[in-house]
């Protein structure tokens, strides 16, 4: 995926300025940067959730219509955006991931239910499907939201801060699954804030701060010198 000269404004405030980055297919890429650097914005702009004021995005698949290639990306937004009081069970929420493949009128049937159960089990929530979503712990809920994206069975996954406020066990389950699916050729792009795990989790890294961007293999980019530049302080790993 090639992002060229992307700029995004929130009202009059410029969040991303002329940013270009290339994301390699079949890799797990971490997007790292200080708070307010525009990490989530970059993701949302690619997904079409916020308008780009300039820039182009080219997909490796060669598909030119954004409406079509956007459906090849499954997205996990930050967890706060979920309405926990909504009358919906964990199973039904995860099954929503099958909707894009169903077309305009078709309802989820046996195949979709089996697919949903399969991914619920993959995130180790196989027996909690009938609970209302607020009856899950933070980590369990995050796994359910990840399962909803995995059910889409797309080639590319965008995860926005998937480990924020998540317990160690859930983080491990999610990361194992990411690695597992990556071996099957899936591409993952993850907004991440915990610098201590970057080297273990990612193949490639994008360091971002508004109009400044560096990207490449983790060993080349994630260096003390670059971090000092991006975070404005000495950070050692």
């Amino acid at each position: 995926m090639e992002i060229s000269n992307l700029s995004v404004y929130y009202g009059k405030r410029r969040v991303l300025n002329d940013v270009s980055v290339s994301i390699r297919p079949g890799k797990v890429t971490g997007i790292i940067g200080p708070n307010g650097a525009g990490k989530s914005t970059l993701m949302k702009a690619v997904l079409g959730l916020i308008p780009m004021s300039s820039g182009t995005i080219t997909m490796d698949s060669g598909e030119a219509d954004p409406k079509k290639w956007r459906l090849t990306i499954a997205y996990v937004p930050q967890r706060q955006s979920i309405d926990l009081t909504f009358p919906i069970t964990v199973f039904d929420m995860v099954m929503m991931g099958t909707y894009p493949s169903l077309g305009l009128f078709k309802r989820p049937g046996k195949a979709e239910k089996a697919q949903t159960q399969k991914w619920l089990e993959a995130v180790k929530l196989g027996d909690l499907g009938q609970r209302q979503i607020a009856a899950l712990s933070g980590g369990q809920l995050q796994r359910a939201i990840i399962a909803r994206a995995l059910v889409q069975e797309t080639d590319i996954f965008f995860l926005d801060e998937p480990f924020a406020g998540v317990d160690v066990v859930s983080e491990q389950i999610i990361m194992d699954l990411v690695r597992d699916m990556n071996r099957q050729g899936k591409t993952f792009v993850v907004v991440h804030h915990d610098l201590s795990t970057v080297k273990n989790y990612f193949d490639d890294v994008v360091l971002l701060h508004s109009d400044h961007i560096v990207y490449g293999e983790v060993g080349n980019v994630f260096t003390g010198e670059q971090l000092k530049h991006f975070y404005g302080a000495e950070i050692n790993f």
Partner: peptide
């Protein structure tokens, strides 16, 4: 009944509904 899927997902999670096209 016809648009139940779309109504459900957009009422529950508007952002995700948008990524579903």
């Amino acid at each position: 009944a016809l648009f139940y899927k779309q109504l459900l997902v957009s009422s529950f999670d508007e952002t995700i509904a948008q990524t579903y096209g």
